[in-house]
Design a protein around this nucleic acid. Structure first.
Lengths: 166, 166
DNA sequence: CACTGTTTTCAATTTTTTTTGAAAACAAAT
DNA sequence: ATTTGTTTTCAAAAAAAATTGAAAACAGTG
């Protein structure tokens, strides 16, 4: 396998994994392309590199910026915009946690909390209340854990892992 | 909100969260329905309860059994099959980790390891090699952590959380 | 202001994923 | 071996998600 093949494989694989996790495949491929690019790229280079349309490239670049995974760079003199990916992987992981927590975990927690108010008249529906209670507890724990991880720095994060694995 | 509304909301919300995470929404709704059911349900009750077709119900029940989240029960005398969900939430989480690790993390790791063999001639493509190296390390750590969590029992798991959050 | 290179938008199209439902397969009971 | 109640399969249909591309908007420049 040469470098070119390797890059190709990496981009594909990153896209595949993302789509398994409910993230637009192309968005992840744009991300991968920028991650391994030695220099910031223009929208045209992204279109070219992945054989996608201008609209698609633009939308996914914007989405990546919303996620805080990609940034825009303006080169003085140049009219074009350049894009580069955040390369610190701990920051990447953190941003993903921030976004998914906000968009997915928190709405679920809200519903669970609302539903838990029904629990007052619980005996009527034993198993429902028990399940809600358990999931609610687990989700709140997960939420706390995420908060902690998000605040943690990379070094601290490694420690956590070590402690768990030991 | 009454119990009935509460159940409805829970099923919807569980389905929404699942589809955000790349899991078939209906599969999660079937799961939710069985989770809160006080007794095992037949395929017909699932169809009825979620207004879905027989084929759909059957496929998603099977998928849930493959994931180890739902089990089949045969009642002696009865011709029909009954289905019930695993209700221990730690087991549910564990099974989900097992499956997703196998289907998603491991293939990605395999690709990263292959791609990493290119690293020998790395200086050619500095940023690519660096990114692969970082992601590879992080993924291997995540993999180890999952292995540990999967082996852990519920009590141990709570401890981990406490240690992290503290 | 008019020109030019660029980004953004979004309705229409394409692709992917999910769902349906009827036919086939299966299995218990007679 | 046939009937009966049930589950499974899978091609076709429907629904959802992603993508295109051309027009509009935008922003420097002369």
């Amino acid at each position: 396998m040469d470098i070119q093949e390797g890059k190709q494989k990496f981009i594909e694989s990153w896209g595949k994994m993302a789509s398994d996790w409910g993230i637009n495949r192309t968005m992840a491929q744009v991300h991968a392309l920028l991650l391994i690019a030695p220099e910031p790229l223009t929208a045209d280079e992204v279109m070219e590199g992945l054989s996608i349309s201008r609209g698609n490239a633009n939308m996914n670049l914007r989405a990546l910026m919303d996620w805080g995974l990609v940034h825009k760079q303006l080169k003085s003199g140049e009219r074009k915009e350049f894009f580069y990916a955040e390369k610190d992987m701990w920051t990447v992981v953190r941003q993903i946690m921030v976004q998914r927590k906000k968009k997915e975990l928190e709405p679920m927690l809200k519903v669970l909390d609302e539903v838990a108010n029904v629990e007052a008249n619980c005996p009527e529906s034993e198993s429902f209340c028990q399940v809600v209670k358990d999931i609610r507890m687990l989700s709140h724990k997960a939420n706390q854990t995420l908060d902690t991880l998000i605040k943690a720095d990379s070094h601290w994060f490694s420690n956590i892992f070590l402690r768990m694995v030991r």
